[in-house]
Design a protein around this nucleic acid. Structure first.
Length: 417
RNA sequence: GUGAGCGUAGCUCAGUUGGCAGAGCACCGGACUGUGGCUCCGGUUGUCGCGGGUUCAAGCCCCGUCGCUCACCCCA
């Protein structure tokens, strides 16, 4: 074996697929309950879309995009996230002018970022998420968070940490930047080199610095929520109110900052602490100006994205797996003479939608039974030289450990029950 | 992009001062004429990540490279 999957990519093997389907089924079902419809956008887009949508100053745009030229020299980028693309589609097809004013869409699919792989971080990874465009009501924010928690609850992930914050509107944010700048200016010479850089580029990023020596300065700094304007404050209060109403008590984290430029007001993150450094299992927030910034009408909106691989990891950490396979029937043969009969029988059963495994290769009966046990077969049908003469087969119930002789003709009706 | 640790059978991993590449699990066969999960016996499985170098001799030492893991960074 010399050719391997590219760095940062992973095969999702058959043994894991059941878990993936389990999650995906819950996700689709829940989205449907909350009135979201699926949208599928291209895996690649014009590079310009992400530069304008995500923000020129962000790390994603600056160093993590898979960008290349197509044969006509157009700059193309593999999508690093899906919000910009959904907004593009929303505008391109005038979705906002149809039906109701609130358009709710969900997506599932692979995203691409050129990063150093780590636990819970890959170069190709799967996200699912929603975008709700056209309402600035705080109830939509709360509903989004409630929906995510419902998904995790159904999956079986408990003890997740829900953190919320407000990053304010445009005006609050410029004010807050100024406040931060002034505050940190006096301490910055004692802080780490990363923070010194952040002060110039994006002071809000200082807030989630992990360097020990920076912590005491960060603790003393003014929080966003204190510097935010009246309407933004009210919005946050309302979101909390609705969350409480839904039986959810989030943790206020004034230091929660999002990495993408388009976020406004509500920002939230859902963490699983079994995961290690990359522990955000879902995150999102409001982006009230993105549609306008991309050339559309003012359209308030909120969305989130969740990482499939991290959810699967969290499930494994907690020993959660999807349960049991369906009633597989394993057909065992005693010699090659009866293989024809066995094959015909398999076909007849499958035609009736009964899942059947048939051993084509010559193996001992013992080995065939072992295999049947390995795939969790509910029944084993033994097609033997002796029985076949009377038109019979042995039907063994693997759980009850009982077996009896039955007519081959009646087998499909017996098993269909 | 930075730092640390690690690449040996399908999986988990031993491998001494450089001297015939190993164990357990799994798989296959048998003990048990044609019946799984237990027990016992036997068998199959290798580009020692890849490429150079040193040496009579390299899984082991040296250089490079690719990959994995964890952390920084960033994020889902």
């Amino acid at each position: 074996m010399s050719i391997k999957a590219p760095r940062g990519t992973a095969d999702i093997l058959p043994q894991d697929m059941e878990r993936w389907h389990f999650i995906e089924d819950i996700v689709r079902q829940t989205f449907r309950c909350y009135g979201y419809q699926e949208i599928r956008t291209p895996i690649f887009e014009a590079t310009e879309l992400f530069i304008r949508g995500i923000g020129e100053a962000t790390d994603i745009v600056n160093k993590e995009m898979y960008t290349f030229q197509d044969k006509k020299g157009r700059s193309i980028t593999l999508r690093p996230e899906n919000t910009a693309a959904v907004v593009r589609a929303y505008m391109e097809h005038g979705l906002g002018s149809q039906q109701s004013s609130l358009v709710k869409m969900f997506y599932m699919g692979p995203m691409f970022r050129y990063e150093r792989p780590q636990a819970g971080r890959q170069r190709q990874f799967y996200q699912f998420g929603t975008e709700a465009l056209g309402s600035m009501h705080p109830g939509v924010d709360a509903e989004t968070i409630a929906m995510i928690l419902s998904i995790f609850e159904q999956i079986g992930l408990a003890g997740l940490k829900v953190e919320v914050n407000s990053v304010g509107c445009e005006e609050c944010r410029t004010n807050y930047r100024q406040v931060l700048f002034e505050y940190f200016q006096t301490h910055i010479s004692h802080m780490c080199s990363d923070c010194q850089m952040r002060l110039e580029k994006n002071p809000m990023r200082i807030l989630d610095c992990k360097v020990e020596s920076c912590q005491s300065y960060i603790r003393g700094c003014p929080t966003v929520i204190d510097s935010v304007c009246e309407p933004c404050r009210n919005h946050m209060d309302e979101v909390i109110k609705y969350l409480n109403l839904m039986g959810i008590s989030p943790v206020m984290n004034p230091r929660l900052v999002r990495g993408l430029d388009y976020y406004t007001r509500t920002a939230f993150e859902i963490k699983d602490e079994s995961l290690g450094a990359q522990n955000a299992v879902a995150a999102g927030g409001r982006y009230d100006n993105l549609v306008r910034d991309m050339g559309g009408n003012i359209t308030p909106a909120i969305g989130f994205a969740a990482g499939m691989e991290r959810i699967v990891l969290a499930m494994k950490n907690k020993g959660l797996g999807p349960i049991g396979k369906q009633n597989m029937v394993y057909i065992a043969t005693t010699s090659e003479n009866v293989l024809d009969t066995a094959a015909a029988l398999a076909q007849r059963l499958r035609a009736g939608n009964i899942p059947v495994e048939l051993s084509w290769d010559k193996k001992s009966l013992k080995s065939q039974f072992r295999q049947a046990a390995n795939i969790d077969a509910r029944y084993v049908v033994v097609v033997g030289d002796e029985e076949i003469k009377q038109g019979k087969v042995v039907l063994k119930d693997m759980i009850k450990q009982e077996q009896r002789l039955v007519d081959m003709e009646g087998l499909h009706t017996l098993l269909a029950m």
